[in-house]
Design a binder for these strands. Structure first.
Lengths: 330, 330
DNA sequence: TTGTACGCGTTATCAT
DNA sequence: ATGATAACGCGTACAA
């Protein structure tokens, strides 16, 4: 690999001049030509480490998430990388697997100057570690007033879900979710749901269990058995994620409950496992492209030391699937 | 961020000594202690760019693939990153979207010294570009004798599929695939299938169309209609990927063909869209963890200028799903 | 065993 | 407009 010195020698100019040409600083057209020729001839590529050392900028951003092997995170990672690329940034992918120590090691790496900024989606309590001065954007999680975050408007999503169930003719609604110990913004889905029900005087139930995955499953089936199979006292369900919606659907189908005739269901997320997939269940879709776009825009602003909003809330939309009745007017 | 100089001053030694401590070169225990204390106190992190400039090693590998937003690539990317991390390497993720120019731009980046090596899964003809001297491992695609590649043993997979259909009682088999213009190793799936059939004198048909996606779909349905619905002359299908298997399944179900009673189906890939998914169709599973592991091992060997095998073929396995009949003895 | 000094390739400042 | 050169932080050969 040739260096700037060699280019300078070949073009018959000094290194300073070559540097100017590379960085688009004005030089005499003729010298510029000569330099560019030399660059081409030598197939010269600036060494990013030398440059990085000088300007301490790497044009690299780290993306920390639990695992890219997941439809939602996969789509998100794809879009974030795409946006970063458009801004001429590279992306280092970090699968934390939800592990605290792994996340910390990535943060350390970041501090070592390897990246200009971090976009993180984490549910660990890394709060006091993020206090450092490296640009950081959180997705889906509020840390503190120092860390800007980007998220779907989960509250609105909850309202929307309730509204659609209501308008689709459901009489008594139900929210199903697994309350996480970790504080994240998905809690607002429940709040939005309740808000709508209260405002429009809909009867509703809440099933929100904090506990292990298996325990949850069992308790949920018990609950559904009671309320739906026996009492028939619920005809509209809002599940806090599509995954839970799927569980509910499987259970109900096993018990010969017809969807959406007897019970209607709305999930949340609207992820597809690849670009060409189709969504089948009715759901509130998170605007993943938007989340990616806004996160990238935000981190770049931060890197450039520009001020940005501390909270970026993105609108969600209802997607008609086959688990709710179709309406003429909406 | 503090520098090596500051550490040296605080520890009362020279920078050379600090450097030695960092790089585990022997120093007097006492000085070592003093230096380590200073490092801790100042929260010193070596600047990777200065180091990179010096040793031209970045401990970073680029992964180029079509898109991480896809179950197979997602799982692969996850595992590759995981393995790289274990070797203290970072991974830059590059979604090429199958675009030639994008792939080239990533290769250029790599040549700029930003990464120590590249793992690529690409179907473009970047052959003459890869001739450069940067370490490169190809997955699933043979370029030339210079570029080592890692792949599933697709030939074996084809054989396995035919064998399982045979042993499950199928009388006349069928291969379904879309021949790509691009040369890749998946062609060997067909060859393996044929090999088994010829060897054991099974009757078989081949549907292998080169053409557009939509055209393929139409022609395939026509073919299935003819052979299965009308003639009943096929009772075992090996689809070249799970995606195609799914298409076949959907079509047959629409026409009231019972699976696996009337027709048995085996796919290929065995991907799950996330760690906790379940596989439902019978399939030949690619050993994704192994592919990841071997690719990483190979690229690191290459970076260390050690010689490696030019071809690494990994065994595949049959996974019992609900689209083939269960057998007692296998 | 430890310290000194040079060089890696680039950018930026200051002369020219 | 261009050239010379210091500085970025580190590793290492060589000197002490």
């Amino acid at each position: 690999m040739s260096t700037i010195k060699e280019v300078a020698k070949r073009a018959g100019v000094s290194v300073g001049t070559v540097s100017k040409v590379i960085n688009n600083i004005e030089v005499k057209p003729k010298t510029k030509q000569a330099v560019e020729l030399a660059i081409k001839e030598l197939n010269y590529q600036p060494n990013v480490y030398a440059r990085g050392l000088k300007v301490s900028r790497t044009n690299t951003v780290a993306l920390i998430l639990p695992t890219v092997w997941h439809p939602f995170f996969g789509e998100l990672a794809y879009n974030i990388e795409k946006n970063l690329r458009q801004h001429e940034y590279k992306m280092i992918l970090c699968n934390s697997e939800g592990d605290y120590l792994t996340e910390l090691s990535y943060l350390t790496m970041a501090k070592q100057n390897q990246v200009d900024g971090i976009i993180a989606i984490t549910y660990s309590d890394i709060e006091h570690y993020v206090s450092s001065n490296i640009p950081l954007i959180s997705i889906d999680r509020f840390f503190n007033d120092e860390v800007p975050y980007v998220s779907s408007d989960n509250f609105l999503g909850g309202q929307l879900a309730a509204k659609h169930l209501d308008e689709a003719g459901c009489q008594s609604l139900c929210f199903i979710g697994a309350g996480s110990k970790k504080e994240n913004t998905t809690r607002n889905r429940k709040k939005g749901f309740i808000d709508y029900c209260e405002k429009y005087q809909k009867t509703y139930e809440i099933f929100d269990l904090i506990g292990s995955q298996s325990e949850f499953h069992e308790k949920m089936e018990q609950f559904l058995l009671e309320k739906i199979i026996k009492e028939h006292s619920i005809d509209g369900i809002f599940a806090v994620t599509d995954a839970y919606a799927l569980e509910v659907i499987n259970f109900l189908e096993k018990h010969q409950i017809s969807i959406p005739d007897d019970v209607q269901i709305i999930g949340f997320d609207g992820v597809k496992s690849s670009k060409h997939d189709q969504i089948e269940i009715s759901t509130i879709r998170q605007p993943i492209e938007e989340i990616a776009k806004e996160s990238v825009a935000a981190i770049i602003h931060l890197i450039n030391k520009e001020t940005i909003e501390k909270e970026i809330l993105l609108p969600v939309h209802f997607i008609q699937g086959n688990t709710t009745k179709r309406q003429k007017d909406s």
